[in-house]
Nucleic acid binder design. Structure first.
Lengths: 211, 211
DNA sequence: AGCTGTGAACCGTTTCACAGCC
DNA sequence: GGCTGTGAAACGGTTCACAGCT
């Protein structure tokens, strides 16, 4: 076992679409059909699913409920992973209010912020803790996943603290490059980076006209 | 010319770190030095830069100011790309307040939302327009890049409308799979997907102990 | 007949190792 | 001597095409 990173990154998408299909009452789907709704090629989909030792039926297709269960198991969606969100500005609030949170197997174990005006308030059902108590919060909640919605300047120091407390997976929205020890996984979402990538292709399109 | 997608995705990161270095007064840096701060291998960095026909000096390293200019040109950071943000909830507000917006070569041309309580208010210096006037807003601002911060259910219909109006690059925060015509580039940021990827590896770590 | 599962071919990306220049 | 630029090798991922099951 051990799926390739690219396969892992597609599984959540498959799972999401399978949920929609099963809600719509569909019971079985072919690789071609599912590939179309998720936007990949049928062979890619079949290869991905074959890595999970999957349950397709030749001549028929995939049994949706079974496939959901299998992917869900692979991603650990039943575990209700406790997640700590650090930074309760607009971004932190948006994340806290994200509807898919619990349906995808997570729960907000704590919200943390340094602002006295925010500490103690309740956001989406969770009381905001003081950033000064970050260590205690992580110990108490046993969270191993942290989401960083802090200003970039604060990110590295927060990372150091949560890693020291046993967090091994970090999702950061700060643009800074983060240093972490081996074994800690960081995923970065950077608005500026995404826009600049789009701008590159946008510029190429306009240059093409000139050429 | 025509850079590979992987190279393009790294250029914004290089540019960001170069800015920090030049602010710190550094004038020259070796591939090893820069690679370390951005978190890639020296050979990867050299290969990437060589694709831009880059200005390194053997025995010395790269001239930071020159390299910044070159990458900036490649990404079109001087063009002040007009961007329309659709959806002014917490997420939309967070995006609108993003500090790197203008420094990275973009400007918020418009904010759009369907909520009467929000329309007309000023957010980060921009007045919120009515979603009903989306077409007019895009025509007026000549925006070709749109950022979607809408609920998932609304995403596809908004995409159809902006694409029809000439938008060719979309950054979406909605988890839904979006259908667009050829030539339109979509980049998706999906919190649930990112967390599920982390959860997969998190689960593997805990299984490893058992094994 | 239809559709999955998969070895083999293909393609893009990364890493290596060194020639070439300062 | 030091560091870039770059062909060549290695790697990983995707696509192809078909054997095999229902």
């Amino acid at each position: 076992m051990g799926l390739s990173p690219t396969t892992v990154s597609r599984l959540p998408v498959y799972l999401r679409e399978l949920e929609l299909l099963s809600q719509a009452g569909v019971e079985t789907i072919s690789s071609t059909g599912l590939a179309e709704v998720v936007g990949v090629t049928p062979s890619q989909l079949r290869k991905d699913l074959s890595h999970l030792g999957s349950y397709g039926t030749r001549g028929v297709g995939y049994h949706i409920a079974g496939l959901q269960a299998q992917i869900g198991r692979e991603l650990g969606t039943a575990r209700g992973w406790p997640v700590v969100i650090i930074g309760v500005g607009n971004l932190g609030r948006a994340l806290a209010g994200y509807a898919g949170f619990s349906s995808r197997g997570f729960r907000i174990a704590a919200l943390v912020d340094p602002d006295p005006a925010v500490i103690g308030t309740v956001v989406h059902g969770v009381e905001v803790s003081d950033l000064a108590e970050l260590e205690a919060v992580i110990t108490r909640t046993k969270a191993t996943i942290a989401v960083l919605a802090t200003p970039p300047a604060a990110a590295q120091s927060v990372v150091d603290r949560v890693v020291h407390q046993g967090v091994t997976s970090i999702l950061t929205f700060a643009a800074t490059v983060l240093a972490v020890p081996d074994g800690v996984i960081v995923r970065k979402v950077d608005l500026g980076q995404e826009l600049q990538i789009l701008a590159y292709y946008e510029q190429r399109k306009s240059e093409e006209v000139v050429r």
